[in-house]
Amino acid sequence: MTADLMVRVRGLSKTFVLHHQNGARLPVLDCVDLDVQRGECVVLHGPSGAGKSTLLRSLYANYRIQHGSVEIHHAGKWVNLADAAPRELLAVRAQTVGYVSQFLRVIPRVPALELVAQPLLGAGVARRDAESRAGALLARLNVPAKLWSLPPATFSGGEQQRVNIARGFISRFPVLLLDEPTAALDSANRAVVADMIDDARREGAAIVGIFHDDEVRSRVATRLHPLAALPEAA
């Protein structure tokens, strides 16, 4: 089954040092090990502040890896995010690992449809194909077609979140990281997103997610990965 292994975390530890709060040290992750295979949806589980988002961001190299390793199976070989060059990290993000955060980062003037299509356009897909796939995803997520040509800055929280989800799912990344993608959605749209997660998983994605909603969590998770809050540093 090792051919299906996509994410391999070993001994990952993280302590934040807040230089302007008297150098306060905040230990968040202590020696985390995690394997994620294709076709799995591993849900990080633990109380608020336990470090779920910190772990997820580390899998995207958004947070720096201080101790331990985070390896991603990328383009036929293992890349350790802890010591990869910036351009390798960018390649991993462009081709292998997608990250959907809770909030959309709006880019001034760029309309919703374009924002969703961008990852495909960047990968060289023809504009017509990219836009039609973007439209299909927005439609599936019940984003009204009259909004597609508008920049999402003025959209509601739930609309922005759905644009963000469409953008995250359009590339069919082999590894998908989801940080509370359903937090601002009504139950009908939560169910759509849960379906999309299941579809991606069945198509072979390795998924790591954080879901506060019990129903969504039990619906999409194939396995829980518990995280406990660490005691404060001495």
């Binding site: 230089h19 961001r57 190299a61 958004n62 720096r64 910036p86 990290l89």
Partner: peptide
Amino acid sequence: SGLTDQVLDDPQHP
């Protein structure tokens, strides 16, 4: 130095 989002989201230097 680093990826832009790394430096801005997880700044290390005081």
